[in-house]
């Protein structure tokens, strides 16, 4: 299944690992912050009502 990348296997694999890693870090960090802030807002709105 894995294509034969010949002498360029290292650069190609590293390019994919680094790029997908950076994108995953961005998506996860954005998602975690979104969840944290949404919860904080719910708490703050609850306090302001009660």
């Amino acid at each position: 299944m894995m294509p034969d990348l010949g002498p360029y296997a290292g650069p190609v694999i590293w390019a994919y690992v680094a790029s997908i890693g950076l994108i995953l870090v961005l998506v996860l960090a954005s998602w975690r912050r979104a969840v944290r802030i949404r919860r904080a807002l719910e708490k703050a709105e609850g306090q302001s009502r009660g």
């Binding site: 979104a34 802030i37 949404r38 904080a40 807002l41 703050a44 709105e45 306090q47």
Partner: peptide
């Protein structure tokens, strides 16, 4: 879109505080 919604919520929290 997701990050803009988060920034809007941060503003709202600050306003409530």
């Amino acid at each position: 879109l997701m990050r803009t919604r988060t920034e809007i919520r941060v503003r709202r929290i600050r306003a409530l505080e």
